[in-house]
């Protein structure tokens, strides 16, 4: 048995083995905790944006906007964001499990904790309007975002079917004509004399709106209903 002690010390000296510095362990721990926190926050953002899109989606309650059940599912549920949220929760679980004391918790406990924190933080973020702001930032800066993550533009950029969305860039209350810049940057004249303007909509410059009606020509659209960009059918009924 003495050999073990002797041989170990000999090997340490011969190979000049040194203890790994403490800062490396601290750095590794901090990285794991940092990644855990980041993924938890990303999961919360994912949940917040899922809530926001779900709450702003007319398709969920207005089935006339879609052709069939499959389209209803695809367009009404923010599937991509929900999947992304689940992915972040999984990565957060993996990170937590690799913290110094992660092994002390069961898989169920860690998942429950991650899910509860993501939901609570997500609800708070959504409550403070952060999800809407982030969604706008992503929509403006991430290519294909509006065709993958937030499909509302796919629903509301169909002027030929009577659906149009954009931001008000000019208002003429005498002639009852609005100018909007649609989600693709095209300018439209909107005739809104006979339109129902839902309660939450304020017709002012910069207001984001959705319009139901029909395209009169290539750049003229006759509105029968103007809805706020944010919000779904139920909210609009309550506010109209």
């Amino acid at each position: 048995m003495e050999e073990v002690s002797k041989n170990t010390l000999q090997q340490i000296k011969k190979e000049n083995i040194k203890p790994i510095p403490k800062w490396q362990f601290l750095l590794k721990d901090s990285l794991v905790w940092g990644l855990f926190a980041i993924n938890l926050i990303l999961g919360s953002i994912g949940f917040a944006i899922s809530l926001y899109i779900l709450g702003s989606n007319d398709v969920l309650l207005d089935t006339s906007l879609v052709k069939n059940a499959w389209e209803w599912i695809i367009l009404s549920i923010p599937i991509a964001w929900i999947l992304l949220t689940i992915l972040f929760v999984f990565i957060a679980y993996y990170n937590f499990k690799h913290t110094k004391e992660g092994y002390r918790f069961t898989v169920v406990k860690i998942f429950l904790m991650n899910i509860v924190v993501s939901i609570v933080l997500g609800v708070v973020m959504n409550g403070f309007g952060l999800s809407q702001k982030l969604n706008t930032i992503f929509s403006d800066h991430i290519p294909f975002y509006n065709h993958t993550m937030d499909l509302r533009s796919d629903i509301w950029m169909r002027p030929e079917s009577g659906y149009l969305a954009g931001t008000i860039v000019d208002i003429n209350s005498d002639t009852k004509i609005l100018k909007i810049e649609d989600l693709k940057g095209k300018i439209w004249d909107i005739l809104y004399q006979d339109a129902t303007v839902k309660g939450r909509v304020v017709l002012e410059l910069g207001e984001e709106i959705k319009i139901v009606g029909n395209a009169v020509s290539d750049n003229v659209f006759e509105a029968s209903e103007i809805r706020p960009w944010v919000g779904n059918g139920r909210q609009m009924q309550e506010n109209s």
Partner: peptide, 14 residues
């Protein structure tokens, strides 16, 4: 055992 003690020494700061 020897490998255990070498690893323990390397990781002593942890």
């Amino acid at each position: 055992l020897q490998e255990v003690f070498i690893k323990a020494y390397r990781n002593l700061n942890s």
